[in-house]
Computed example of a mutant assay.
Amino acid sequence: MIHHMGGKYHHGDLRDELVRVSVELIAELGMDGFSVSQVAKRANVSPAAPYRHFPDRAALLAAVACTTACGLREQAEAAVAEAGPDPVAQLAAASGAYTAFLINRRIGFQAVFAEGLEDPKYTELHEHRRALIDTYLRLCLAVCPYPPAALELMEQLNAQAHGYGEFFLNGVYRRMNYTAAQVTAKSTTSARIVIDAHVDGQGPAQP
């Protein structure tokens, strides 16, 4: 039986609710504000209840990371589908999609790649991480076939897309009266510039 404090969760529902509340908590307070006790309080259950589904903080955070990785991948793939057949446009759209995701949900790579989740036992998380990385890497390889250059491009685009989102969330862009949509558009345009520079600078095929 789940010990609750006025909540309406059944045993089978609580796991998903704990993940949802964890995402909400991280969005509001950041990774440093995340704790199992705070999650239990917000979910309106006893402090012991989360441990019936997650043995420790890391296990709950791994579930949050899985949910975030899935959401990111879905948003990137949707943006690619809307971008048309041009590989450069697809990659730029996927990069902008990350900025939009971060702004709207206030959670992103900081949760997907959080410290303390390297243990191989988090099989599901590692699979979702790999699928997310592969989504971006395939797009990078489509415009930059030399693998080391494609990896570098992916890193640059991810860092840039995250930076645009953080500037909005931290108030930098909002003080300039930029809307979330405008920042997403700026991120997408900047991604296109970076991609074009990589493509133009490839020269002859690398060994």
Rank of each mutant, 00 (worst) to 15 (best):
L102Q: 12
L102I: 04
T123S: 12
Q90H: 00
V194I: 02
A181V: 05
L153F: 02
R105H: 13
A131C: 13
R15D: 11
F101W: 07
M176D: 10
P207L: 00
G171Q: 12
G96E: 01
E28S: 14
I103P: 13
C144N: 04
A49E: 10
V88A: 01
S37Y: 10
R73A: 04
A159C: 06
Q160P: 08
H162A: 08
A27N: 15
Y51P: 09
Y173F: 08
C70W: 02
V36C: 09
V64P: 05
T99N: 10
L61W: 02
Y51M: 11
K121I: 07
A81S: 03
L151H: 07
T123C: 08
Y178H: 11
M31C: 08
Q182K: 05
I193W: 01
R105Q: 13
V143R: 02
Q160G: 07
A181G: 09
L125N: 15
F54W: 14
V36M: 15
L132G: 05
A63S: 12
I26C: 11
A161L: 03
N170G: 10
Q160Y: 03
Q182M: 02
K41N: 09
G6V: 13
G71M: 03
A92V: 01
C70K: 12
A49P: 05
H198G: 00
A191I: 00
E127H: 14
R175E: 10
A59N: 11
P55W: 10
A114N: 08
V36L: 14
K186N: 02
E28Q: 15
L29H: 14
L25D: 13
D134Y: 13
Q160K: 11
L18G: 12
T135V: 09
A100E: 09
G6W: 13
N158C: 01
L29W: 11
C140K: 07
I107F: 07
V39L: 11
A27R: 15
S37E: 10
H126W: 13
T184F: 00
Q160R: 08
L139G: 05
L25W: 13
S37P: 02
L169M: 08
G203L: 03
A62D: 09
E24K: 15
Q110H: 09
P147T: 03
D32L: 06
Y136C: 03
V39I: 12
R174L: 05
M176Q: 11
V143D: 01
G71V: 03
F167V: 03
Q75Y: 03
V172Y: 09
G96Q: 01
V88P: 00
Y146M: 05
A94M: 10
R174Y: 06
A43F: 08
E127Q: 15
A81L: 03
L139R: 11
L18H: 14
F101C: 05
V143N: 01
R129F: 12
N177L: 02
A114Q: 01
L157E: 15
E77G: 02
T184W: 00
T184V: 04
N44Y: 05
